[in-house]
Nucleic acid binder design. Sequence first.
DNA 1: ACATTAAGTGATT
DNA 2: AATCACTTAATGT
Length: 216
Amino acid sequence: MIDTVAHKELVKERIGFLFDQKLLDEILSVGRIKQLPPDSIIMDPGEDIHFIPFVLEGSIKVSRENRDGEELLLYYIESGDTCAMTLQCCVRQSRSEIKATTLDDTTLLMIPIQYMEQWMNEHQSWRQYILESYHNRMIELIETIDAIAFMRLDERLDKYLKDQAKLLGTLEIHHTHQQIADDLHSSRVVISRLLKQMELKGMIEIKRNKIILSSI
DNA sequence: ACATTAAGTGATT
DNA sequence: AATCACTTAATGT
């Protein structure tokens, strides 16, 4: 149950326009608000899923992980959106296939999964929203596949930095070279060298734990 | 001052 | 483009 006025307002502001009043009331009565600091793990592969998270504020990074703990960034989820992977998992009563981490300070709306199916049948606005969300995720996934298959690593790195900057609304990226390498599934040495080249071209400025873009 | 962690570099595959 | 082995630089205790 969402009881504070501020939280109710936040939900209405971010996702309220998507649904009819009746559904919105239900969301407000069964949902929970969860606030998380940056780099919190929301979901890990193999975990049981009990809630569907909707991003109200902040953003989430969704990545695939192999059994050695190596990662590959799949896509980001921004305000007003949800994770199709999670939806699919809960319908099939399966476990998480992916890892989800917060990118910055994030506020989530958590909906217990038992309402999913019911709302799919009862509310066309819900059905539409879920399908739309699937679609968006699919497009982003294809974009990521394209990048992996067709772009050189230096182009991918450039895109990565710009995406990150857009998402967080700042030109300063607070990541180590190692973290970037993990996201792109490359190695730290390679990333360091590519960044060095970008710095020589005047595209970025390298500081410890920080990269400053000169433009988006 | 010392240890730890991030970043830089040359050589090799 | 990845990995190794090593150096240098920055930061915390």
